[in-house]
């Protein structure tokens, strides 16, 4: 049973990690992330990078949808904006990758603000439709502004480089993706310790009440769109450096649905939920694939026969999680923690 966590100040109460045990675990996690590429092959590094990119984008969407209550199905299109920006800057200007990523995030944020304008008038499903419309427009631009985006063929870009070293393989690109993901997650978590973050939560809980409290809806709703799109833009930029080919078909609407599903499964209004949701949505299909692969030596056609079953199992798992824990994986995680905090007493 955990004892001795009395907080004597507001700052201590609002701390991200309020116990030594938590700080210890976080230190271990960071150490694990630093050591990971030395103990994994290209395949594992690839998956980790993919998960990290998805975490950044999911965290961005969670800021908008989970914390501010504004539903968006434009996350993939914003990622596309970021990816094209990075690709163009890398191809045409050859500027440093960090600058490219910042500009990618910035441009996505500006477009996010424009797309967010209808949020002042509409909410819920209506806003979702508005963001789908924006997504369709952006895809049209990607596919038809051929002189800039390369049209349907898209753009092939060189890898990111630093002092002559090129980040080509997954275990090399990891050193770009991992630190940026960690920084952005800390940024997102800290956001909700500030006035801005609390304003987002107030708007989500009741926007009229928030306005009565002095929160300017126009500013904060658009700010939420901007921050969320910034995250998507950076994630798209990382995606571009990872795959080095950007086409209009790289960021379909189903990808936006993927991120929405990730925050629902992981836990709306929780940064931990963003992480768990992205990990779940990215890794469970791979784990199920591995399980099918195990059958291959004894059943040669297992891949063909079991692949559709795998999809059904994945869908079933999402439904089961939602039925038994509507607050998502983050809540399951909190329950587990609570159990150990109070052990041997019952929660």
């Amino acid at each position: 049973m955990r004892i001795g966590t009395v907080k004597e100040s507001y700052i201590a109460d609002a701390a991200l990690f309020d116990t030594k045990v938590q700080r210890g675990w976080m230190f271990a996690l960071l150490a694990g992330l630093l050591l990971l590429p030395f103990f994994t092959g290209q395949y594992a590094s690839y998956l980790v990078c993919l998960v990290l990119i998805n975490i950044v984008s999911t965290a961005g969407l969670n800021i908008l949808t989970g914390f501010t209550g504004l539903v968006s199905l434009g996350q993939a299109a914003f990622m596309g904006v970021g990816a094209y920006t990075v690709a163009l800057m890398e191809i045409k200007l050859g500027t440093p990758f960090l600058l490219n990523l910042l500009v990618a995030g910035g441009l996505a944020a500006v477009i996010g603000i424009v797309v967010g304008l209808p949020s002042l008038r509409v909410k819920g499903l209506y806003l979702a439709i508005a963001t789908i419309a924006a997504s369709v427009i952006l895809h049209f631009v990607f596919a038809n502004w051929t002189s800039v985006t390369g049209g349907v063929s898209g753009l092939s870009m060189p890898p990111a480089s630093l002092f002559g070293f090129e980040f080509i393989q997954p275990d090399q690109v990891y050193w770009i993706i991992m630190p940026i993901t960690v920084i952005m997650l800390f940024g997102a978590a800290n956001l909700f310790r500030t006035r801005i973050g609390r304003a987002f939560i107030a708007i989500r809980d009741r926007d009229i009440s928030a306005e009565v409290l002095g929160i300017r809806l126009l500013r904060y709703k658009l700010l939420s769109f901007a921050i969320s799109s910034f995250y998507a833009g950076v994630a798209g930029g990382l995606w571009a450096y990872f795959f080095r080919v950007v086409t209009p078909e790289s960021f379909p609407l189903t990808m936006s649905i993927f991120f929405l599903a990730a925050i629902i499964v992981g836990g709306m209004g929780s940064i931990l939920g963003s992480v768990l949701g992205a990990v779940f949505m990215t890794m469970v299909p791979e784990v199920l694939k591995m399980m099918v692969g195990v059958l291959s030596p004894i059943w040669p056609d297992a891949v063909a026969v079991m692949s559709p079953v795998r999809i059904i199992v994945f869908g079933g798992l999402i439904i089961i999680f939602l039925i038994f824990e509507p607050d998502g994986l983050a809540e399951i995680w909190r329950n587990i923690r609570r159990f150990f905090h109070l052990w041997p007493f019952k929660t």
């Binding site: 290209q42 993919l50 795959f243």
Partner: peptide, 22 residues
């Protein structure tokens, strides 16, 4: 040695990395 990709580029690249690493 086949892997299912669901016709998604990221899954196809994952399959490529997995198969070539093994």
């Amino acid at each position: 040695v086949p892997e299912d990709t669901a016709y998604k580029v990221d899954a196809s690249v994952a399959a490529y990395n997995k198969i070539t690493s093994q």
